[in-house]
Simulated scan of single mutants.
Amino acid sequence: MNTTGKINYIELPCQDLAASKDFFTSVFGWGFVDYGPEYTAFENAGIDGGFFLSQSCARTQQGSALVVLYSAELEATQDAVSKAGGEIVKPIFRFPGGRRFHFFCPSGNEFAVWSDHG
């Protein structure tokens, strides 16, 4: 349901649409709908959004917002991210409320995954 004033959609830069689609499909089960050669929308990600072709990437050290995903099995997710070509940049650590890790996807964007388990 669309609600005035609520986050509805998020768009992220992407250096390699095909690699990013493969990565997020295999690790997180996202689906994609292509809208031409320079844009793909993602679905089944918790919020709808898309990747647009760009030489830029979203990283917190550059002032970007951090997209944080959830996993009930943090170690297994960190392993899946690594095996699928993601780069772990902050291994699992504790923070108030749980544990998380940060990674760069194949297009260089920084994401985090957190869990309230363990």
Score class of each variant (00 low, 15 high):
W30Q: 00
F103C: 02
F28C: 05
W30S: 00
W114F: 14
I10A: 08
L12D: 00
Q61S: 14
I92D: 03
V113S: 00
K6E: 13
G46R: 00
T77S: 09
E38S: 14
H102Q: 13
P91R: 09
D48Q: 10
S54Q: 07
C14I: 00
S64N: 09
Q62P: 07
G63T: 02
N44P: 06
G49L: 02
S64T: 01
T60R: 07
V33I: 09
S71I: 06
A112L: 05
T4D: 15
P13W: 01
L17S: 04
E43C: 09
F52N: 07
R99E: 06
A80D: 09
S54G: 08
K6S: 12
F101W: 00
C57N: 11
A72G: 14
P37N: 09
A45Q: 03
C105W: 03
S107A: 15
S26W: 05
G108M: 03
E73H: 09
E38G: 11
R59G: 08
K21M: 15
S115G: 07
L69E: 03
E110G: 07
T3Y: 12
A19D: 10
Q55P: 11
G98H: 06
L53P: 02
G5L: 07
C14Y: 00
Q61E: 15
E38A: 14
G49I: 02
T4H: 14
P106H: 08
N109C: 05
I92T: 10
H117E: 15
S71V: 06
P96K: 10
E11S: 10
I47Y: 01
Q62N: 15
D34H: 08
G118C: 07
K6M: 13
H117K: 15
C105F: 06
